[in-house]
Amino acid sequence: MSGLAKVVSHRLFWPIVMLLVLFAINLVAFPGFFTITVRDGQLFGSLIDILRNGAPTLIIAVGMTLVIATRGIDLSVGAVAAISGAVACSIILGSPEPGNLATVAVAVAVALLISLVLGVWNGFLVAVLGIQPIIATLILMTAGRGVAMLITEGQILTVNSPPFKFLGSGFWFGVPVAVVIAAVVFGIAALVTRRTALGMLIESVGINPEASRQAGLRARGLLFAVYTFCALCAAIAGLILTANTAAADANNTGLFIELDAILAVVIGGTSLAGGRYTLFGTLVGALVIQTLVTTVYTVGIPPIATMVFKAAVVTIVCLLQSPTTAASISGFRRRLAARAGKGLAAS
């Protein structure tokens, strides 16, 4: 019983249950849900689709997790994704050889470099000027789309470049490239923050900035680092999204993805108040969100009800995770146990 209670009280218990429930619903609606087939040496199946379509959200959510751990938030990730897509596409389009690997490499490198600049900008506003993160990143969130629009000159830039398209819809040893990239980003973030002291220092700044400063932490440097990393993640996600459709759309690339990313972090159990974070939780959160989208299609929920369905599921997850719910559930269990105890005593 106490072992079970421990499992139930784990902060990832309900998100994982939610994920399993969604899987079960899918399985009922579509018996072949778990089937993974190999076609032309490439993996296919619903689960693979979930991983591939969820990759951009996951990548951004990884960066967002670290930002949130410092008590911050980054609303500009969608705009940064749009800018990086626009930059890459305009470079490829402007090149005489759009299909050349070198061209694509340059385009990707420039897009990522620009995202670093954008991240430093966010970090500057938050760490140096001391602007509240939600306001600071709101600036780039709105301005960023405008910048992307200027880069694309208001057009949807369609590129015909196989190496670029490979990033979005290619396969690498049978695994979608987007999934590989997400795994690498996730792995590097987990490794760098948990194998070094970076994660602990980030949490410390998020929990108590002044105590951290007095303990000799370079809070400013850490903030620059996380906002820059988050922007880099956003740019990577933007490249995948753009490559997938082979088109840069300043208005719609990564639209509302910041909300999905924040949601993934929160579902994963990292508090918006900053402090302790869990990248694995974020992974589960991102999977829940993407599975939800897939479920909508497999179960055949009419498109007009999609948003309401999504909202309902998110509400349930948040309710299950709230401390108040946890307290009332444990109170209920205690009363049950007390009643059972009394019954025993009486008999």
Binding site: R195, T196, A197, L198, M200, L201, E203, S204, I207, N208, E210, A211, S212, Q214, A215, G216, L217, R218, G275, R276
Partner: peptide
């Protein structure tokens, strides 16, 4: 407000200043 980092463990709180002084890339 200026001392403990409440949500970190006793161990993390004890090594915090030493770790910050060493730099993040040289974990204890």
């Amino acid at each position: 407000d200026e001392g403990i980092v409440g949500d970190l463990t006793v161990r993390d709180n004890i090594v915090l200043a030493l770790q910050a002084d060493r730099g993040w890339f040289r974990p204890i």
